[in-house]
Amino acid sequence: MVVRIKNLVKRYGDLLALDHLSFSVNDGEIFGLLGPNGSGKTTAINCLLSLLEYDKGEIEIFGQPMAPDAYHIKREIGIVMQNVAVYNELTVRENIDYFCGLYVPDKKSRKELVDEAIDFVGLADFADFYPQKLSGGLLRRLNIACGIAHKPKLIIMDEPTVAVDPQSRNKILEGILALNRQGATVIYTSHYMEEVERICTRILIIDKGKPIATGTKEELKAMITMEEKITVETQQLTPEQLARLRALPHILSAEYQNGLLVVKSGRGGHNLETVLSFIRKEKIQCGKIYSELPTLNDVFLEITGKHLRD
């Protein structure tokens, strides 16, 4: 086990930021910490890194208690902060070399690591650029390179793709998968469920500092009653028809708004077929019909009653 957090409690005055949060991260995982803004993800990470005082709880990394002076543990950790943390007065290469040098004193081996990191994040053409000259996406990549150049065993990434263009986001996510393949364990926090679904092997959903659910994405989706969401474009649907649709077996909910009928159906039925039969029987004229599997947002919605991005 790489990380173990047990009953972590953190208060900011009267606000309970972390409410007995517990989780563990296994070797080789990409562990996703998913929750809306203000749910306590960054607070949990800062406590984990011994930056923040906490009121109660235990934190172990690599089987040892984490503390501000646990330098042997810190040496094996790489951090990618939510905010870009680089020096504007140093070039891309100098920034990476500076932060790598805090972990790797030997100049020669450091040079190789810095070159590798520059190649890894695709900044070879910008190595002598100052950060002000980089776009938002490239700046994020530099931020990542500064955190991972020393080849840590544990990489903690706190929302590294905030305000990043899709191309750079893709590059970053691919990079995380590559780092994981090279043997690094990754803790990845985000409020973007698509990212977490795409790269994380295990996910913890938190809200208001409390753990809500944990598991693989398949396990999480299996926790909820909804199996399928069917959307039908139609301009004619009476309230009576909507009521009859809701009464059908396995239909959890049916909402009609702005010409869109959204039907959520439960497990065990032939849901699409049921809805299509109903449309035919009621002679409802319709446009496109499409079916979606539940997302992590649906999981979050069913458990908390609100959307991830609320």
Binding site: N46, S50, L51, K74, R75, I79, A85, F99, L102, Y103
Partner: peptide, 8 residues
């Protein structure tokens, strides 16, 4: 914060 989490 980045300096503080480094082993220095």
């Amino acid at each position: 914060a980045r300096i503080n989490v480094s082993p220095v």
